[in-house]
Design a protein around this nucleic acid. Structure first.
Lengths: 345, 345
DNA sequence: CTGAAAGCGCTTACAG
DNA sequence: CTGAAAGCGCTTACAG
């Protein structure tokens, strides 16, 4: 059974190709009984018009291209899941692609998506992307561009972000509320904006609560790995630096630190209260469970789709397109690693 | 800047559309210098032919559609990641879709992918899918169909599977090797094939080692949740049933059981040795870490792409297409929850 | 070696 | 209300 085309339907029903096409698209100038006849038959034989051929006329593919810098990563795969679920509800398909943190590959992927004539490109920019002319071209060719998480100030388009600084502030403040006075921070690398923002949120929270920032309580976890968490905890321990709170750049980092503390009989949260970041699956399974920040990736995906659909409509109506910067609020999830009230009062 | 088309290039270079098209596809009957001129210019202006228009002639979209029954699930999202990474290496794009365990939605998604004229459909069949005529149609329309994990015996196509029975056998045998004599099994629901297979593997391992199967050591974890693991451990405990090993249907289930044991001062692995299943992220972060079975999702994705590319080539050469059943071997990962040697000798 | 022309399957302005 | 025809941007058999 070959795929049916308009011509086959038309012949079968003794109608013209035009009429069948119009009936399918519910044009007002087709007789009701004709429409019914066509719909009944196409439903029966399960006919759907060829998407590629339609595109040549409509210029709409109903496909969204999503580019993430890395895919084997909790945060991004969750967001992609969110986009896919919402996209399906609104009749879009999603092509997911992975730039593997390479500027060259990112450029190539964008170009290929343009060649596919996707209706929208959602991207989180690679760490090594130095300039954004490839993304400017997306905008120029009237394709809706939405940048999320890792954005660029040089692009006029809608952005969806997380307020890492605020989230880090919440996390640190929570530790202070639990009675912590000297709070260490295992930060991410020096360059990534998210690492900088979380660091700044930490600093701001300290400042607002009159706690002096101490440089010796800051360590770096470049890869945000479990091992780095362990190693940094050990490093502080070996240098005999005392502290009673830890705000870790990520949950694995927090988990690594916990592993070290337990080995050395440091009680969590009594001796050191801990907050991680991003609500990884693991954080509900460690002993103790890890307090963390939840980003609600589903909400991020939802918000991107919402902005996309809005811009598509504005484009269609030839209205001015209004770009929007959405900030998705993060939520502190308090678990065992920082629930200290019982001990301090 | 609008998207360029063949016509623009041809005009610019004072050539015909045909010649430009042929130069781009490296046809042998185009003068070398002409080819060079065309390639140089198209590279400069970053021209790529419109994919939809090409399709109308070539019938190739270079898109693969992947349908998973559920996406917010470790196992499937890993496989999708694998497919995407390998697909990109071979010039394919991947549309991921989620059937949400609905037969109706699955049918709809398949139809839409066919409408998109994808070159291949990779699917893991929903639990509620009662018949597979929608997938038979994929085969009929000469689109490569590859079914993975949840397969159907009624389809003539290549399959990629995991040998759950063998993996469960390995897991159980490992517990026996650790000195366990009475091994409980928290199985999945009664119907899913994977639950049945793991149960049978468990039974076979017991039998091969002359350990009598005891019905009272079998509990059901329908949703494979942490809570069910906890509850079942409690149930056995409350009924005073003694056992020294546990083979759990999944890592979260194992984690739940561990939580209960720890609360009741049952030592792991000394009192009860535990093996989980599927190597969830959490299994390396619990205390103790959980021994588990690793499926190597990346290998599954790789294998699907390999089969797909093979069939595509056979199709092109008009050769007979040879379907293949690939079974991806699983690997036992031994961690703390079952490392007992120290205690028993 | 180059180019004119047909055609892939659809949509839609236009004529009747 | 229906249908003939043009055209979307490409590929490729064919003529020269």
């Amino acid at each position: 059974m070959q795929n049916l085309k308009l011509k086959d339907i038309a012949e079968k029903l003794d109608l013209s190709i035009s009429t069948v096409s119009k009936a399918l698209k519910d044009y007002p100038d087709v007789k009701k009984t004709t429409k019914k006849k066509v719909l009944k038959y196409t439903k029966k034989v399960n006919f759907k018009p060829n998407a590629q051929a339609s595109f040549l006329r409509t210029q709409k593919t109903k496909i969204i291209g999503v580019i993430v810098p890395t895919i084997i990563h909790h945060f991004y795969s969750k967001i992609v899941e969110g986009i896919i679920l919402i996209a399906e509800k609104t009749g879009y398909m999603v092509i997911t692609r992975c730039a593997e943190e390479s500027f060259e590959k990112e450029k190539k992927l964008v170009k290929e998506l343009m060649q596919q004539n996707v209706d929208g490109v959602f991207i989180s920019i690679s760490n090594y992307t130095r300039e954004t002319s490839h993304l400017q071209e997306v905008i120029n060719s009237k394709t809706t561009l939405i940048v999320f998480d890792r954005i660029s100030k040089f692009l006029s388009c809608s952005n969806v972000m997380i307020n890492d600084r605020d989230a880090a502030y919440q996390a640190t403040k929570h530790l202070i509320d639990q009675g912590c006075n000297s709070i260490a921070h295992f930060r991410g690398g020096l360059l990534p904006q998210i690492a900088v923002d979380r660091y700044l949120g930490y600093r701001m929270a300290l400042e607002d609560h009159n706690i002096k920032y101490r440089k010796e309580l800051l360590e770096i976890c470049k890869n945000s790995s479990e091992k780095e968490g362990y190693d940094n905890a050990k490093k502080l321990y070996d240098s005999k630096i005392k502290y009673d709170g830890l705000f870790a750049f990520s949950d694995p980092t927090a988990a690594g630190a916990i592993r070290f503390y337990q080995k050395n009989n440091i009680d969590i949260p009594k001796d050191i209260a801990i907050v991680g970041f991003s609500n990884w699956e693991l954080s509900s399974y460690t002993t103790p469970t890890i307090s963390t920040i939840d980003h609600s990736s589903l909400t991020i995906g939802e918000e991107m789709m919402r902005l996309f659909l809005k811009e598509i409509t504005q484009l269609q109506k030839n209205e001015k397109i209004i770009f929007q910067n959405s900030i998705i609020p993060s939520k502190l999830i308090v678990r065992e690693s920082s629930t200290r009230k019982l001990f301090i009062k």
